[in-house]
Design a protein around this nucleic acid. Structure first.
Lengths: 112, 112
DNA sequence: CTTTATACTATGTCTGTCGTAGTATGTCTG
DNA sequence: CAGACATACTACGACAGACATAGTATAAAG
């Protein structure tokens, strides 16, 4: 299996997070595990990448946060905003274009 | 048309260049125009991005360069190496995986 | 009672992209 | 023949996102 250069995913980590939050509010550790599961262990997001994405998204008003203590442990939950939903949908649109562009330069038939 | 954030393509500019050089040696200005054409004006690579990619690729041994004066103007041509061909093919493989991962998080059916 | 899992925060580095600017030559147009 | 425009670069610096490293702190499990 080829190692995945994370530069490629760069620009789509926010989308991954928003995809998960679109369903229900969640928090760092859970989101990390969900990304692992969803991608069938093919992609494991780094903690630092994840938490820096949270602050970026919150600053941009795409998510909001609240604290929950009911599990005994203090957790910061994140919730997607209308803004964030719009942004997510825009990213999905953009993906189509991205794919189109990149695939102009991909060949499967070059073996020598 | 959604504006394409170049962060997305990041990690695939090298692939674009190598794709073009896989056919024949070429130089900066021509490669830039070819990328425009191939993507049907959908992607226009910045000069600085292009030339910094050249030095990166050359340093990594994926391309080699030679100077040509026959057009009257001095031009630096780049040529793909065996190394570069291998790298290109690996990137094509990787793209399949990348697509798979990103598409886990893309939905076309979220309109409200 | 120690390991393991959970749930983060802080700090700094690195890489690729891009803005801005400048150099220099060739070609076209009035 | 002058000035604009296309060609073909180089230099420098800024910035954002990913990540390495490290550390804090609590809860659950054996």
């Amino acid at each position: 299996m080829a190692e995945l250069s994370s530069d490629v995913i760069r620009g789509y980590t926010d989308t991954m997070i928003l995809y998960i939050l679109y369903e229900k509010p969640s928090y760092g550790y859970e989101i990390q595990k969900m990304i692992r599961m969803i991608t069938n262990e093919k992609f494991i997001i780094k903690e630092t990448t994840l938490y820096s994405a949270f602050s970026r998204l919150e600053k941009a008003g795409q998510i909001t946060s609240f604290t929950d203590m009911s599990s005994g442990k203090k957790r910061t939950y994140y919730q997607i905003s209308e803004n964030g939903k719009e942004y997510y949908r825009a990213k999905c649109e953009e993906w189509i274009l991205t794919k189109e562009i990149v695939e102009c330069f991909i060949r499967g038939d070059r073996n020598g």
